[in-house]
Design a protein around this nucleic acid. Structure first.
Length: 296
DNA sequence: GTACATAATCGAGCAGGTTT
DNA sequence: AAACCTGCTCGATTATGTAC
């Protein structure tokens, strides 16, 4: 069984992508006339013994759809690999991190990189509910993700730990709560104080809930927010006790007080990457490790 | 009118054989 | 070994036909 003609395959990719022979001819990156494409498509269909698309109106057949799904990642990534080979990509650093990291830590960190690399290009991806580091890495959309190290991931992804950040509760300064023990000594281990935290799939909550489980305690949040600064905001307004991070080098907003969670495991933050890092990314990784040591 | 198919024709590239 | 000739294939083009 012979593999199909690659030129036919490429033409089919454009026909499928642009929804027809004529649109493909108009938008393709090089000049070719409609009859040529038309002929090649018929040849490809003959070769494969299956119809790939209906002409008028245009619609991929199931077979055509299957072929297009197979081809699409390859052809869509060609420009990127070409750029990499040309070397332009060598100064392009693509990172992903959560909003707070992007906003508070990366700027100082990147200042150092920028000093040594004048033509640095940056792409920052915000990690959130809709984008997770594993797929970004798998699709080679990013070089490094900075994220918590608590969720499981494929073995092909390497990790480098940066920081351990203690979990901490925050209460209004005037609150009469002194320590965690005083709110966790409750009948059946069910803590009734209202809790404000990030959503349950967030690593902070996972780490926290795992430890509660271990201690046979139950405490579910009544307010879920999307960022840490919102937590202090709502604590300040008296909605409850906040679960947050004791980030080194930062101080609490006025009017709030920390309650240490002695014995709770810290949240581990680190870098995820795949394969061998390109020089610019390696430089960033080293700088990140040094930066993490400094703020510890 | 528009999108696609077909027909006729041309040129590039290759294999192979022969000549220099 | 390099240069040249020849015939073949493939895919391009333009012109034209056909279906929606």
């Amino acid at each position: 069984m012979q593999p199909p003609n690659l030129h036919h395959i490429e033409l089919f990719y454009y026909v499928a992508k642009y929804g027809g022979i004529t649109p493909a001819v108009r938008k393709m990156p090089y000049g070719i006339q409609q009859p040529a494409v038309s002929g090649q498509m018929l040849q490809l269909e003959r070769e494969l013994g299956v119809k790939l698309f209906n002409r008028r109106p245009f619609a991929l057949t199931p077979a055509g759809n299957e072929l297009y799904t197979f081809l699409s990642p390859f052809f869509s990534k060609l420009p990127l690999i070409a750029e990499q080979l040309r070397g332009e990509e060598s100064t392009h650093l693509r990172l992903a991190a959560e909003r707070t990291v992007l906003a508070n830590h990366l700027p100082t960190l990147l200042d150092q990189i920028k000093k040594d690399c004048t033509n640095l290009r940056l792409t920052m991806n915000e990690l959130g509910a809709s984008s997770n580091p594993e797929t970004l890495l798998a699709n080679q959309d990013i070089d490094i993700a900075i994220t918590s190290l608590h969720s499981s991931r494929p073995s092909s992804i390497k990790t480098l730990e940066l920081l351990s950040i203690p979990l901490v509760l925050i209460v209004p300064e005037k609150s009469n709560i002194k320590n965690f023990a005083s709110i966790s000594k409750v009948p059946e281990g069910k803590i009734m104080e209202p809790m404000i935290s990030l959503s349950s799939e967030h690593s902070i909550n996972k780490v926290f809930q795992r430890e509660l489980d271990k201690r046979d305690l139950v405490w579910t949040p009544i307010v879920e927010v999307t960022s840490l600064d919102l937590i202090s905001n709502y604590v300040d307004r008296g909605y409850g006790i906040g679960l947050t991070l004791d980030v080194p080098g930062t101080s609490l907003p006025k009017g709030l007080r920390k309650i240490n969670l002695r014995g709770f495991p810290p949240l581990k933050i680190g870098m995820l990457f795949q394969g061998k890092l390109k020089p610019i990314a390696e430089k960033f990784a080293l700088a990140a490790v040094a930066y993490a040591k400094k703020i510890k």
